[in-house]
Amino acid sequence: MTATEQFIVEDGPYALWSPARIEDMQANIWSGKVGTVLVSETETFRVWHISIAPGERLPFHRHVLDYFWTVLSNGRARSHYEGGAVRETTYCAGDTRHFSFAPGEHMVHDLENVGDETLVFVTVEMKAGKNAPLAL
């Protein structure tokens, strides 16, 4: 985060967020750790496992690389996004979603398990894209 960036809490997109969530976003806004465990990395790919028990969350992180995830379990999650949006998603085992980023584009969000079962994902990032990989 640069010195000119700030988060307005009293009024605006983050007004309903807890102070702890805002602090987590500020602390991790440049984090390239998009999963729980990095299980493989080559010159062209990073493969992550994500396992989040009910009530747990994956901290904020920044996506800059084209990637896809596949969920291996059924469940529900809530994500908070840079800019203030909050979205809930219901997952079915096998669901897969692909993301692509233009030069300079990114997405910052967290992932909180709001369901009753452990959420398990595999996420694959393509390092040979339009943006340089973030340091881990």
Results as ranks from 00 to 15, higher is better:
1 M>V: 05
2 T>K: 03
3 A>G: 00
3 A>I: 01
5 E>P: 06
5 E>G: 02
5 E>T: 01
6 Q>K: 02
6 Q>T: 03
6 Q>F: 03
7 F>Y: 02
7 F>C: 01
8 I>M: 00
10 E>M: 01
12 G>R: 00
13 P>F: 02
14 Y>T: 00
15 A>I: 01
16 L>H: 04
17 W>C: 01
18 S>L: 01
19 P>G: 12
20 A>M: 03
20 A>L: 06
20 A>N: 02
21 R>T: 04
21 R>F: 00
24 D>R: 02
26 Q>R: 11
28 N>D: 05
29 I>M: 08
30 W>E: 08
30 W>Q: 08
31 S>L: 11
31 S>Y: 08
32 G>T: 08
35 G>Y: 08
36 T>Q: 14
37 V>H: 14
38 L>H: 12
38 L>A: 14
39 V>Q: 13
39 V>A: 13
40 S>A: 15
41 E>Y: 12
41 E>S: 14
42 T>M: 14
43 E>C: 12
43 E>I: 09
44 T>M: 15
45 F>K: 11
45 F>Y: 15
48 W>C: 11
52 I>H: 02
52 I>S: 04
52 I>Y: 02
53 A>S: 14
53 A>Q: 13
54 P>W: 12
58 L>M: 13
60 F>S: 05
61 H>T: 05
61 H>C: 05
61 H>S: 05
62 R>G: 06
63 H>C: 07
63 H>K: 09
65 L>Q: 08
66 D>K: 08
66 D>P: 10
67 Y>E: 08
67 Y>V: 06
67 Y>D: 11
68 F>D: 04
72 L>I: 07
73 S>I: 07
74 N>R: 09
75 G>Y: 02
75 G>M: 05
76 R>P: 15
77 A>V: 02
77 A>T: 07
77 A>W: 00
78 R>K: 13
78 R>T: 08
78 R>Q: 12
80 H>M: 09
81 Y>I: 09
84 G>Y: 04
84 G>R: 04
84 G>K: 04
85 A>K: 14
86 V>K: 03
88 E>I: 09
88 E>L: 09
89 T>N: 08
89 T>L: 10
89 T>H: 07
90 T>I: 12
91 Y>W: 13
91 Y>S: 07
92 C>W: 11
92 C>Y: 12
95 D>R: 05
101 F>W: 10
103 P>A: 15
104 G>I: 09
104 G>L: 10
106 H>D: 05
109 H>E: 06
109 H>C: 06
109 H>G: 05
110 D>A: 06
110 D>T: 05
110 D>M: 06
110 D>G: 03
111 L>P: 01
111 L>Y: 01
111 L>C: 10
112 E>A: 06
112 E>P: 03
112 E>C: 05
113 N>M: 06
114 V>G: 02
115 G>F: 05
116 D>Y: 09
116 D>M: 11
116 D>W: 08
117 E>W: 08
118 T>F: 07
118 T>K: 13
119 L>Q: 02
119 L>E: 04
120 V>W: 04
121 F>N: 05
123 T>S: 13
124 V>I: 15
124 V>R: 03
124 V>F: 09
125 E>M: 13
125 E>H: 11
125 E>W: 07
127 K>C: 13
127 K>M: 15
128 A>P: 00
130 K>Y: 13
131 N>F: 13
131 N>M: 14
132 A>N: 15
134 L>D: 13
134 L>K: 12
134 L>E: 12
136 L>R: 14
